[in-house]
């Protein structure tokens, strides 16, 4: 009877079975004064937020041909960065959507192929860096060293974006003299085929 009101120390399990940080694991130690002390600090690393912001700013800079597009992209980026800072998946998702919408708007408004590629690549990079930072913090918490994993991941995505972007531009430029639409259509068919092949 009285144990019901007192509450036992034995039933207090950590949120995460593998958790051992002072914030999660309270067995045999001082009880926290507030509920917040029990939660596991999951805020993403500063490096993750910074890379997200930088890639996003590149994307926004490439959309400046159309001011409304740039404003939309900037608003999306702001939401995206706040979402990553707070580890919120939803804000991250909506921010990314805003950023991409800005990029599409700029493209539709007549941004140059280079600007479109840079904007799209930057947006992908910002989304990727942010998502990776959130996933790292969810799995490992704020206290774990994650610098190297973050740098390698962002560098790999950046490298892929650069290589594919440059390749696309080269193909586009080479076909400029002849039939640009045909070249682009071919490129797209190749990409679709590629995806379809990988699907199996």
């Amino acid at each position: 009877m009285s144990d019901a009101v007192l509450g036992s120390t034995a039933d207090r399990s950590a949120e995460d079975p593998t958790a051992g940080d002072p914030s999660t694991d309270g067995h045999g130690t001082a009880d926290p004064s507030t509920d917040d002390d029990w939660s596991f600090d999951q805020s993403p690393s500063t490096l993750g937020v910074a890379t997200t912001m930088m890639a996003g700013l590149v994307a926004v800079a490439a959309t400046t041909v159309s001011p409304p597009a740039a404003v939309l992209a900037l608003a999306g980026l702001a939401l995206l960065v706040v979402g990553v800072r707070r580890g919120s998946n939803r804000a991250h998702k909506f921010g990314t959507a805003g950023l991409f919408a800005g990029v599409l708007l700029a493209g539709a408004a007549g941004a140059s192929p280079t600007a479109s590629l840079v904007a799209f690549g930057g947006a992908v990079l910002a989304w990727d860096a942010g998502e990776n930072a959130i996933s790292l913090s969810r799995q490992l918490g704020a206290r774990a060293p994650t610098r190297r994993a973050t740098v390698v991941h962002v560098a790999a995505t950046g490298a892929v974006a650069s290589v594919v972007g440059v390749l696309a531009l080269v193909v586009y430029d080479a076909s400029k003299t002849g039939q640009p639409t045909t070249a682009v259509a071919l490129l797209l068919v190749a990409a679709l085929l590629f995806i379809w092949l990988l699907d199996d």
Binding site: G107, A108, V124, A168, P180, L187, L188, F194
Partner: peptide, 13 residues
């Protein structure tokens, strides 16, 4: 817009 088509190719990549 050729730029958007190129961006789309990048996304598919």
């Amino acid at each position: 817009q050729a730029g958007l088509l190129l961006a789309s190719a990048l996304g598919m990549a």
